[in-house]
Amino acid sequence: MSREGLVNAALLLALVAVPGWALWADAPFTITLATRAVIFALAAVGLNIALGMGGLVSLGHAVFFGIGGYAMGILASHAQNYTPLMEWPFEIAGTKSMPVIWLVAVLASGLAALLIGLLSLRTSGVYFIMITLAFGQMMYFFAISWPAYGGEDGLSIYVRNGFPGLNTLDPIQFYGLCFGLLCLVLVLHARLMRSPFGLALNAARQVPERVRAVGLDPVRLQLVALVISGAITGLAGALFADLNRFVSPTMLSWQMSGEIMVFVIIGGVARLFGPVAGAGFYVLLEHLLGGVSEYWQIFLGLFLLLVVLFGKGGLVGVLAGRARHD
């Protein structure tokens, strides 16, 4: 096993051992923290596909995170108030079933990624960064000024949504569900990396001219990557809203986009387990430093600055050495 493989195995082990210990020690708050880390990791794996493989510096991934969150909020609020979502031309009722909510979240955020991608991939480089940031802000202001679903106050859900055969109110069972989804998505990402699509996407990031010369369209490859990426981040958004039983425009804010990117970078961009390490580290830092100082983000900022200026490759890079393919 390579060094990176060992690091990955250790991270995976920690994701099983920490909640296992918390269950044994009866510390449900630790399980909630672990769930938060796993959901952030899932969102960041989504971004890592666009950023690491596709080289797309998207500062608007909160859009997909928030759309996933609102998919959950809107469906569940209609279900809990017994009001139909839509009456014409045919009636659609809300739902409290997680699989249905996940499907809607994935489809809605994937569609949003398609639309944003079609517009923003007309450009590249720093234009792309600014445009994704701008579309993120557009959704944020729209959510604030659209009063039907709570506007600035957001939407609360009384009871966490259900999954067939599980009691999702039990923290460890909900954790298991999120962890299972994270593993599935990591497998998907690993397979994508080695698939013809992933190789072509990598090539499109490095030398778009050559990709074009062999008859592939780099923009189309990037668009597909962005849609997959957005859909995964949207799924994470639906889980995050379910964890808090609350969704608000904050999930759509530019700070959220920045944080998702921070998870990827601190962990190690383009590394399979980079987002997992980054999100875990972030939640740990937030918990430890947040208790010490109200202004803990100063230290996060300083740490991030050091990582960017001096520590290329993030945490996984530091632990596992140089990437094999770069």
Binding site: G258, M261, V262, I265, Y295, W296, Q297, I298, L300, G301, L302, L304, L305, V307, V308, L309
Partner: peptide
């Protein structure tokens, strides 16, 4: 990323 880090430092 570095300028995002600067925002955090300045704001906080």
């Amino acid at each position: 990323l570095a300028t995002f880090a600067l925002i955090l430092i300045f704001s906080e």
